[in-house]
Design a binder for these strands. Structure first.
Lengths: 138, 138
DNA sequence: TTGAAAATGATAATGATTACTGTTATTATT
DNA sequence: AATAATAACAGTAATCATTATCATTTTCAA
């Protein structure tokens, strides 16, 4: 009945380290497949399943962030608080590093019956590149 | 080459009206499948594809909002500005109606090369129901 | 009424992610 | 160092939400 997650001890993994390092070293917000392509330069025989598995455990460890993108998930190796812009046209995600202040989160916390662990601002729109393409094609 | 979206004239559709009415009349944030189940009480022969199609066009019309939930999309018939809380455990979405003020969006807009069309705050955490279940099973 | 185009139902196809299985690597303990 | 337990792995099948296709029906302007 109770679906307890079996508590396991994580062992060392070169692949997981490499995936974390890969995400930390880049400034974009790659999909699992993009990480797979990139990491294969170092580990040509790595399996896509391994990439997915390690991305999931890195998220659980709090080492990286899953951005909650639609359709294909995107990951961020930068875990310092910042916000994101999602292009509705091409799916690209950009960092919004400008400091943004939110007032009223406290009352939001009271409104939710549960526990809030994170809050961030999601900006949506059309990125510069897509705007360009659009103007070319009209 | 240029993938122009063919400009079509939308014709009247009872199903689309019913789906919009369904979303407006409920306070939760159903998935496409949940809408399908509900709307079949009125239109037992409706196809799931029709539900998906109409949810998409209602979004394009600006009549409803897709919340960008992970895995399975969720829809909201309330288009007045408000924010949402996503439960990381069960996927439920709750409204955050408390007025929340954001300052600094302007500078964020400058930072993005493109055009920002919407901004909202995403709260994540564990909902009350999941917190309860967790405490029972420990 | 008629004809063009949108909407629909049924279902196949797609594509991202997860599950499974047999094998390999890690690590604590002899 | 050898052993044993189990986490991590590669390869691949399975899952599942969503989209595409296509033949038919409905809408609606002329």
């Amino acid at each position: 009945m109770l679906t307890e997650k079996k508590l396991t001890v994580q062992k060392h993994s070169d692949k997981r380290d490499a995936i974390l390092e890969n995400l930390r070293s880049r400034k974009d917000h790659p999909t699992a497949d993009m990480v797979y392509t990139s990491i294969r330069e170092e580990y040509p025989q790595i399996s896509l399943a391994t990439v997915y598995r390690n991305l999931a455990s890195l998220c659980e460890n709090g080492d990286i962030i899953a951005l909650g993108a639609k359709g294909r998930e995107r990951y961020d190796g930068n875990i310092s608080p910042h916000n994101h812009f999602f292009c509705l046209s091409c799916g690209e995600v950009e960092d919004i590093m400008s400091p943004i202040e939110i007032s009223g989160i406290c009352s939001a916390g009271k409104e939710v019956g549960g526990k809030i662990t994170s809050a961030s601002i999601v900006f949506r729109g059309i990125c510069g590149k897509c705007l360009e393409n659009k103007s070319k094609n009209n």
